[in-house]
């Protein structure tokens, strides 16, 4: 409870600072619009016909991107993680992939796929693929030595070991990978929409700034942030439900 209180407190302080900054003309109004204007646009945005479709477009494409990334990365991660030689052989490649700036490939994707939702989903999926893959591999590799001894001493056969020991013990790590992917997905979705003419919250941000509606652009930026927070929070709740044991034992 007191944790929540502190979090609210910090938000209030930031908002007050913002308000004061504008009030005493510390901030340039063209760069940082008054908090009250942004607050107004934040609410008024709901009346705009393009608002909900934009939110939905960003959210649904982000979810699709995570979904495709997970469908590919989890099985591949389980495979790579359980074969030591493969894990070592692919290490450099994976480190490279993790650090690769996917957004730099956008012009190529546009040429290949066109400026549409499909292109956005592909970009998100690629960006989400690596955190999920790496977490899955890590989860499979990170077996507790006592569990390894237990499995050996009770002569557990390979298929049982995979499905009842390796997989469950990797699940919390896979879940972490997806949690990271949830944040990444919104970042990449909005980034793509800002740069490329594809629908979504990012698109509205760039349209608003072109029209000099800085406060509206700010309101959309805050909504984009909220999308990331909501997605992560929902996933954490789901995680707590599906893997009740994970948090208690770590």
């Amino acid at each position: 409870m007191s944790k929540l209180l502190w979090q609210v407190f910090v938000v209030v302080i930031v908002l007050l600072g913002w308000f004061a900054g504008n009030h005493f003309n510390v901030f340039n109004r063209d760069v940082i619009p008054p908090m009250t204007d942004v607050a107004y646009q934040f609410i008024a945005a709901w009346a705009r016909p393009e608002f909900l479709p934009a939110i939905w477009s960003t959210l649904s494409d982000a979810l699709m991107g995570i979904f495709f990334a997970a469908v590919l990365a989890v099985p591949l991660g389980l495979l790579i993680g359980s074969l030591r030689a493969v894990e070592i052989a692919t290490r450099t490649l994976l480190d490279f992939g993790r650090a690769f700036p996917v957004v730099a490939l956008l012009p190529i994707f546009v040429l290949l796929i066109g400026a549409n939702s499909a292109m956005k989903i592909v970009t998100i999926a690629i960006a989400c693929f690596f955190p999920i893959l790496l977490q899955t591999i890590y989860g499979v590799r990170r077996q507790e030595p006592v569990i390894v001894d237990t499995v050996r001493s009770f002569r557990i056969p390979h298929h049982l070991r995979f499905f009842r020991v390796l997989l469950p013990s990797a699940l919390p790590y896979i879940a972490t990978g997806i949690r990271i992917a949830a944040t990444v997905s919104i970042l990449v979705a909005v980034g793509t929409e800002v740069i490329m003419p594809v629908p979504g919250v990012g698109r509205q941000i760039s349209v608003a700034s072109i029209n000099d509606e800085v406060a509206l652009a700010f309101a959309y930026v805050i909504y984009a942030g909220f999308l990331g927070v909501i997605l992560t929070t929902l996933w954490e709740i789901a995680e707590e439900r599906m893997l009740p044991w994970a948090r208690r034992t770590r």
Partner: peptide, 9 residues
Amino acid sequence: DYRGSLMPW
């Protein structure tokens, strides 16, 4: 380490 040797799942 009996805590570690039981599977928490």
